[in-house]
Design a binder for these strands. Structure first.
Length: 142
DNA sequence: GCCAACGTTGGC
DNA sequence: GCCAACGTTGGC
């Protein structure tokens, strides 16, 4: 496992949990609950305190709206059934993107064509490369 | 262990 | 609201 900072992308339907909700939680952060996919779980377990990630609104908006940071590394998901092996990390909101980056824009950008967001549309917690991170931050006005 | 049926996610 | 992609379940 690398010591470098890693980057991630978290998907949420704004109806269920929006960027606004995330911001309202404040600096303490809150558990990212409900991941029930083994690849997503593996990603959660790879995260280190201080890793940053994009907050993506699926379904409504379909855009990256903000940046979050891991404040607590993985621990058992309190919302999981007893004995189920699912995990969460705690995330806090860092800042919004001045200009949200939409899925349409990402798809239209050749350098982002290999993003998990494009190639594995249904994965809810995805890795983002340092290169992709930079490009999207620039596009988002960060 | 294979694979068809089924359920869910999420873009359109 | 539809449907493609894909994960899960269950019969054999």
């Amino acid at each position: 496992m690398s010591k470098d900072k890693n980057y991630w992308l978290y998907k949420s339907e704004p109806d269920a949990w929006s960027w606004k909700d995330q911001v309202a939680v404040g600096a303490k952060g809150i558990a990212w609950e409900g991941v029930r996919n083994h690849l997503a779980k593996k990603n959660l377990m790879s995260m280190r305190k201080g890793d940053q990630g994009f907050f993506y609104h699926s379904n409504e908006g379909k855009d990256i709206v903000g940046i979050v940071e891991v404040v607590r590394e993985y621990y058992p998901d309190p919302s999981a059934e007893d004995g189920d092996p699912w995990v969460v990390v705690d995330l806090k909101a860092i800042k919004p993107l001045p200009k949200p980056v939409t899925l349409a824009v990402i798809k239209a950008e050749p350098t982002l064509a290999k993003m998990s967001l494009v190639t594995s549309a249904r994965l809810s917690v995805q890795p983002v490369t340092a290169a992709e991170w930079k490009i999207i931050c620039t596009m988002g006005g960060v």
